[in-house]
Design a protein around this nucleic acid. Structure first.
Lengths: 279, 279
DNA sequence: GTCAATATGGAATTTTCATTCCATTTCATT
DNA sequence: AATGAAATGGAATGAAAATTCCATATTGAC
């Protein structure tokens, strides 16, 4: 519709979607979220099948495509297919073999294999999902903080709780926000401009996590965050944020990839601090 | 046409094609070569477009698929699509890449890759380390418990904290032991013979975890445990125990595999409870 | 509250595509 | 060389899919 140019690759499309997501009408926003969260489905599905799983009409998909300047759904789909084509070669067929083997075994064994497979998948996704430059920026921010505030509730809490343990061992000052609901805000009141925060939240986002991250960023304290969708409210109030969708097994998600990410961040921060100290 | 079974994944198909390549008629051989050389084209193209670039008739593609036992071209194509969905660089491949270029990349990026690789390695080890029969026994024990006591400190604490969250969601009664040091023992005093405990501890073993596990097992309460060595004091006082060594990156360990294990155990327990309830 | 503009659902339409069918060619066997 | 069987090309068919269109619903401005 607009005379802006049509996105030619996935990155450009993603940017365009994010830019306009706030202005999009309800159903189109729904499609936008679905598309960015399930790019593979768009690549392989048919308009009808996608419509069902995104819970919209097929015509809405066409409209969505046209809103972004494509001729129709099909040409939009090309972008998602090209993205898959261009992924670096290298295949891990083991995952599939593993998933198959599980079936005739004991049911609980199958469950274990399922989570192992999901873990592998998540870790693989992590490789491509995290931009090293961005990661490095996040590390710098946290490395320069006097105190690192770790904000997470519920499903995300184990991640920061582990980071708190590791930071402690590494002699880096941090404050775990997320235990007793009452005192959290009091702790955050101490945070100042020389500090930084790391917030984690997955859908459905804990309201407290969001409001605390907002409060902190409102005080001009840099916020690094980890979340599972580009539409997360955390993304909006963060200096640097990462999208990491953990693969699920029968609807349940483990934290395999998140834990790897958390540890990498923790160790990288410690490393950078040491470098800074030497200078 | 043969009554061999239809290949279900790309590897099997590839093997089948290579095996029969010599016996294939001219045009089908041509298709075979094209398919293995341009798998991406098969995945995304239409029969017509592929026919043009492979220089055969569309009908030949259908025949080719049927020769290998598929119903038609479309079902063959599914194999090629599945391959793209799941393709991801293998962890050993990544390790090699990491070792090669490691230096000129950003250091923090290398750290992340290191933890991802370690995660893959740990998950792989998990596959062979856990005996399904034993796992099933552990599941039974915990499924029959009125209340599950989750015992863990320090590095192991995030694991049980996540299990506590998941059990809560699944409406399974559990008690997290490991938060405030003072009240732990008081909580455990309530544990009775209809309960069970799950203890996690890695070297250097937290004294409290051990003594609490001992106390519980002394009351004839079954204990399932997760630890990182056969010499762990936890192994001695446990009804069923699992050894899980998490791979490390430059001396630091993440919890990728432990988290997968914990989730598998949690979900398997919930599953078994549901089964028991139906009977 | 009214009206216009925009968005949405769903059926109707058109296009695209895989598959089938059959006439013709190629190949192996004698 | 003759014959039958297998393979091939290409048009015809019918199914499936994307797209369009229109009636209805929703939203926002005054």
């Amino acid at each position: 519709m607009s005379n802006e140019q049509v996105p030619q690759d996935f990155e450009a499309l993603k940017t365009a979607i994010l830019q306009r997501k706030a202005v999009l009408p309800k159903r189109l926003k729904q499609v936008a979220a679905y598309a960015l969260d399930n790019p593979d489905e768009i690549a392989f599905g048919t308009a009808a099948s996608i419509a069902v799983s995104a819970d919209v009409q097929p015509s809405t998909l066409v409209r969505f495509a046209q809103h972004f300047g494509f001729e129709g759904f099909s040409s939009l789909q090309q972008i998602f297919r090209a993205r898959l084509r261009e992924r670096a070669p290298g295949y891990d067929e083991r995952l599939r073999a593993l998933a198959e083997k599980g079936n005739d075994e004991l049911e609980s064994g199958a469950i274990l294999n399922g989570f192992i497979a999901a873990g592998h998948k998540s870790l693989n996704a992590l490789t491509s999902a995290i931009d090293p430059v961005r990661f490095d920026r996040a590390v710098s921010i946290l490395a320069n903080a006097a105190t690192i505030y770790l904000i997470a509730k519920r499903r995300a809490y184990p991640i920061t709780s582990y980071m708190a343990y590791a930071f402690g061992k590494l002699k880096i000052r941090c404050q775990l926000v997320g235990t007793a609901a009452g005192i959290d805000d009091d702790m955050l009141a101490f945070a100042g401009e020389s500090d930084a925060a790391f917030a984690v939240s997955f859908a459905p986002y804990a309201a407290e996590t969001i409001s605390q991250a907002l409060a902190v960023s409102g005080k001009d304290i840099p916020v690094v965050s980890l979340t599972d969708s580009v539409f997360s409210p955390l993304a909006e109030c963060s200096t640097v944020w990462f999208e990491l969708a953990e693969a699920d097994h029968t609807g349940f998600r483990s934290l395999s990839a998140s834990m790897a990410f958390a540890m990498a961040l923790t160790v990288a921060v410690a490393e950078k601090r040491q470098q800074n100290a030497v200078k």
